[in-house]
Amino acid sequence: MCGRFAITLPDDAMARLFAAAPANDLPEVPNYNVCPTNRVHSVIAQEDARRLVAMRWGFVPHWAKTLDDGPLLINARAETVAEKPAFRTAARERRCLIPASGFYEWTKDADGRRLPWYITARDGAPLAFAGIWQLWEGDDGRPVTTCAIITTDANPDLAHIHHRMPVVVAPEDRALWLGEAGKGAARLMHPAPEGVLQAWRVDPAVNSNRASGQALTRPI
């Protein structure tokens, strides 16, 4: 799964990287501890143009009565995203890219304590997670754009840490994922190639969703 990540790029750098026009209400950066239900940056393609927008991390199906109606859907499995009623329309029609500088996963020691790892691209480049999104409108009529990160089996670099990982979309595949380059996005939902990612242990301080600061990503 993917339950926490970091984003450190300034908004203008993200906009240039993804050739997207930035919205005016983007989340504050840097954020070294992005948690579920936080607002996140997301790249979408609409009307032949890319936009960098804010979304709530936690996909809310259109039939939900409230934002908290049902389980918190922060991830969607690549193997079933095209079949699950909550996700299947979004998988066909509403795909997005979620920028990240890195993400966290956990192992456990012999005493059951959670040991966090920070995972980044080996070359230091920003990551782009495959995502899906949904515009949800509550009873009060106020729309909220929500999203989920698609996950797949872990590659050999990460399998010793966790059996799942986010789908990382390579730069040359981003137009296809966003629907700008025709059909075939389903073939992108696979693990990142071996050697692309690296991981190191970080301080257990990140176990708290209230923790913040660059020190959360430093190796220990």
Rank of each mutant, 00 (worst) to 15 (best):
A148Y: 06
Q46R: 09
N209V: 08
M14C: 11
D68Y: 10
E172C: 08
D157H: 07
V169H: 04
H160R: 13
E79F: 08
I149M: 13
V60T: 15
I7Q: 01
V168N: 07
T37K: 08
R122G: 07
W200I: 09
S101A: 09
D48T: 12
I44Y: 00
A205C: 07
L97Q: 06
Y118Q: 13
E83C: 04
A192E: 12
H162M: 04
V206A: 10
I150D: 03
A21I: 03
R201T: 11
L97E: 01
I74W: 05
A148E: 10
F103A: 05
W177D: 01
T66F: 14
I161V: 04
Q46V: 03
A23Y: 00
A121F: 02
G58W: 05
E28R: 14
E47D: 15
C147M: 12
D111N: 15
A20V: 00
A64Y: 05
A186P: 12
T107R: 15
R187F: 02
M14I: 01
P171A: 02
T107V: 08
S208L: 09
S101D: 02
G213P: 09
N75I: 03
P61Y: 01
Q214P: 00
A175I: 02
G184R: 13
D157Y: 06
E93W: 12
E47P: 11
V34R: 12
Y32V: 05
R16D: 12
M55C: 03
N75V: 01
R4D: 08
C147A: 15
V53S: 05
